[in-house]
């Protein structure tokens, strides 16, 4: 495998042939903010926080999905990019109902951290206050749509790491929402293996653990069988 060299924020960096700008930057210790990116699943370039500038290219490039090019000169922290990131974060806060002080994820939320790091101490836009529900039907986990940023990290781990295909995005535009099976209450979504990967993947407090639970130690043989068939035969219903 041959390597490529490029410049990121003035530093000479070398990267594997098929590396993305994000890979190259991470390896060189340069931090590019991300939200929809999750190590281990494929990237979709959706949150647009990782956009960077490259000299000579008029368009901004998503670092997570753009492959490095020999000799490319990347800037990850220009004033313009910082401004766009800040607006992006403000839009996310104004879109749904993010009230950090009462959130289960307070202090370990990626969205909150990014906001701090970008000096976003208030939102200039009007909050749109859409009405969203909280689903607490699952014995172990909860889903609070008010805090979902639709990054689909949960959907991607559910499909491509766990292989259960329980979660998906439904609807479109601002009315998109994460659903389980046929929009059942999560607790009734019987393809869910309760593996908890989605909860671990969620960058905000939208998916959360509901404290220690009774069901925790119950081994579910049927579930295991189901997940094996789902993964190996790509068959989700008998």
């Amino acid at each position: 495998m041959c390597a490529k060299t490029l410049t990121i924020d003035g530093n000479e960096v070398s990267a594997a042939d098929d590396a993305t700008i994000l890979d190259a930057a991470t390896e060189a210790g340069i931090k590019i903010p991300t939200l929809c990116h999750l190590e281990g699943v494929y990237d979709i370039g959706a949150c647009r926080l990782c956009l960077v500038e490259a000299v000579g290219i008029p368009k901004l490039l998503p670092a997570c999905t753009t492959k490095v090019v020999e000799g490319m000169n990347v800037r990850t922290d220009t004033e313009r990019i910082r401004k766009y990131r800040r607006i992006n974060l403000e839009l996310l806060f104004a879109e749904r109902n993010h009230v950090c002080s009462v959130c289960v994820s307070n202090n370990h939320c990626e969205l909150q951290t990014l906001a701090y790091n970008h000096g976003m101490d208030h939102v200039r836009y009007d909050y749109l206050f859409p009405k969203w529900a909280v689903d607490t039907t699952h014995p172990r986990y909860g889903m609070d749509h008010n805090r979902c940023i639709l990054c689909t990290r949960c959907v991607r781990v559910c499909w491509h790491v766990e292989g259960a295909g329980t979660l998906n995005t439904a609807g479109r535009g601002a009315r998109s929402q994460i659903i389980a099976d046929l929009i059942q209450p999560w607790g009734e979504a019987d393809s869910c293996t309760s593996c908890g990967k989605c909860v671990m993947a969620c960058p905000t407090g939208a998916l959360f653990q509901r404290g220690a639970t009774v069901g925790e130690m119950e081994h579910d043989r049927e579930k295991l069988e189901f997940i094996i068939t789902a993964r190996e035969k790509k068959q989700w219903i008998p």
């Binding site: 979709i44 959706a46 949150c47 647009r48 992006n88 996310l92 104004a94 879109e95 535009g173």
Partner: peptide
């Protein structure tokens, strides 16, 4: 609804 700038 996929990307933030357009959706929100």
């Amino acid at each position: 609804g996929k990307c933030v700038p357009c959706r929100a």
